[in-house]
Amino acid sequence: MSPYKAVETEDKSSDVVWHLASVSHEERVKSHGHRPAVLWFTGLSGSGKSTVANAVDKMLHDLGCKTYLLDGDNVRHGLNGDLGFSDQDRVENIRRIGEVSKLFADAGLLVSTAFISPFTVDRELVRGQLQAGQFIEVFIDTPVEICEQRDPKGLYKKARAGEIKNFTGIDSAYELPLQPEVHVKTAEHSIEACAKQVVDYLKSHGYLKAVSS
Results as ranks from 00 to 15, higher is better:
residue 1 M to Q: 02
residue 3 P to Y: 01
residue 4 Y to Q: 10
residue 4 Y to F: 13
residue 4 Y to I: 12
residue 4 Y to L: 11
residue 6 A to Q: 06
residue 10 E to N: 13
residue 10 E to C: 14
residue 12 K to G: 14
residue 18 W to K: 12
residue 20 L to S: 15
residue 20 L to G: 12
residue 22 S to C: 09
residue 23 V to T: 12
residue 24 S to K: 04
residue 25 H to I: 14
residue 30 K to C: 05
residue 30 K to A: 10
residue 31 S to A: 13
residue 31 S to M: 12
residue 33 G to H: 09
residue 33 G to F: 07
residue 35 R to C: 14
residue 37 A to Q: 09
residue 38 V to E: 01
residue 39 L to I: 12
residue 40 W to Y: 11
residue 41 F to G: 02
residue 42 T to A: 07
residue 46 G to Q: 02
residue 48 G to Q: 02
residue 50 S to C: 08
residue 50 S to D: 04
residue 51 T to E: 07
residue 52 V to M: 04
residue 53 A to Q: 02
residue 54 N to A: 10
residue 56 V to R: 02
residue 57 D to K: 01
residue 60 L to H: 06
residue 61 H to Y: 09
residue 61 H to K: 05
residue 62 D to C: 06
residue 63 L to E: 06
residue 63 L to N: 03
residue 64 G to E: 07
residue 65 C to Q: 04
residue 65 C to E: 05
residue 65 C to P: 07
residue 65 C to N: 05
residue 67 T to C: 03
residue 67 T to H: 02
residue 68 Y to H: 12
residue 68 Y to A: 15
residue 69 L to Y: 00
residue 70 L to C: 12
residue 70 L to T: 06
residue 72 G to L: 03
residue 74 N to V: 04
residue 75 V to P: 03
residue 75 V to L: 12
residue 79 L to H: 01
residue 81 G to F: 00
residue 85 F to M: 13
residue 86 S to L: 11
residue 86 S to M: 09
residue 87 D to V: 05
residue 88 Q to K: 14
residue 89 D to H: 12
residue 90 R to P: 08
residue 91 V to Q: 03
residue 92 E to R: 08
residue 93 N to Q: 04
residue 96 R to S: 10
residue 100 V to E: 02
residue 101 S to A: 12
residue 101 S to Q: 03
residue 102 K to G: 11
residue 102 K to P: 12
residue 103 L to G: 03
residue 105 A to G: 08
residue 105 A to C: 15
residue 106 D to E: 10
residue 106 D to Q: 08
residue 107 A to T: 15
residue 109 L to R: 05
residue 110 L to A: 02
residue 111 V to H: 02
residue 115 F to H: 03
residue 115 F to V: 10
residue 118 P to Y: 05
residue 120 T to Y: 11
residue 121 V to L: 07
residue 122 D to P: 06
residue 122 D to H: 08
residue 124 E to K: 14
residue 131 Q to T: 07
residue 134 Q to D: 15
residue 137 E to Q: 05
residue 140 I to E: 01
residue 141 D to R: 00
residue 141 D to G: 01
residue 142 T to V: 05
residue 145 E to A: 09
residue 146 I to L: 10
residue 146 I to M: 11
residue 147 C to V: 04
residue 147 C to H: 00
residue 148 E to G: 03
residue 150 R to Y: 03
residue 153 K to C: 04
residue 154 G to W: 07
residue 156 Y to G: 13
residue 158 K to F: 01
residue 158 K to S: 01
residue 159 A to V: 08
residue 159 A to S: 07
residue 161 A to K: 12
residue 161 A to W: 11
residue 163 E to F: 05
residue 163 E to P: 04
residue 163 E to R: 05
residue 164 I to Y: 10
residue 165 K to E: 15
residue 168 T to E: 14
residue 168 T to Q: 13
residue 170 I to H: 13
residue 171 D to T: 15
residue 172 S to I: 06
residue 172 S to T: 06
residue 172 S to M: 07
residue 176 L to S: 11
residue 177 P to F: 15
residue 181 E to T: 10
residue 182 V to K: 00
residue 186 T to P: 00
residue 186 T to H: 00
residue 187 A to T: 02
residue 187 A to H: 00
residue 192 E to K: 04
residue 192 E to Q: 06
residue 194 C to H: 01
residue 195 A to T: 09
residue 197 Q to W: 01
residue 198 V to E: 01
residue 198 V to Y: 01
residue 200 D to M: 10
residue 203 K to A: 09
residue 203 K to C: 09
residue 203 K to L: 10
residue 204 S to D: 13
residue 206 G to E: 14
residue 211 V to G: 03
residue 212 S to E: 15
residue 212 S to P: 15
residue 213 S to M: 05
residue 213 S to W: 04
